[in-house]
Design a binder for these strands. Structure first.
Length: 137
DNA sequence: GCCAACGTTGGC
DNA sequence: GCCAACGTTGGC
């Protein structure tokens, strides 16, 4: 079971927007980056991902679940781009900010800290546990 | 809003 | 295949 982290600008699509979609979830479309796409292709049904607010909030706000594996992105005719569907599972009692991640030596190798521009990224098991702890879960 | 980092494109 | 130009992302 792999863990992931997915970024979204809250002005475009926020955690609250995903929560509002309920059990049907939402397509994680719009990714136009090969690395990010490859990560989505590797996602399996039922795997969990952190939902991260980029740019204005820069914090992990909740946990979502993969409810559909990679399929063509409905927002483009370009067959290169695929996306998965996700639904909100659980918000963090306390959001985990980027600053908190940078400050914790256990997260020094986290992709979020080292490759800021990758919007869909893998999270190691140990990192998943640390972020959950920091978030009060 | 600015700018650095990174990815992609296209001319050669 | 190289590399300059350009576009986009995301932290600040």
């Amino acid at each position: 079971m792999a863990y992931w982290l997915m970024k979204s600008e809250p002005e475009v699509f926020s955690w609250d927007d995903l929560v509002a979609k309920g059990a049907q979830g939402e397509e994680w479309d719009g990714v136009r980056n090969y690395q990010a796409r490859n990560n989505m292709r590797a996602m399996k049904l039922g795997e969990k991902a952190f939902f991260y607010h980029s740019r204005t909030a820069t914090e992990v706000v909740g946990i979502c679940e993969i409810i559909a594996e990679a399929h063509p992105d409905s927002t483009t005719d370009d067959p290169r781009w695929e996306c998965v569907d996700v639904r909100a599972v659980q918000p963090f009692p306390q959001p985990v900010t980027l600053a908190m991640c940078k400050a914790d030596p256990r997260l020094a190798d986290m992709v979020l800290v080292n490759n800021t521009r990758l919007s869909v990224q893998p999270v190691r098991d140990s990192e998943w546990a640390v972020v959950c702890e920091l978030g009060g879960l």
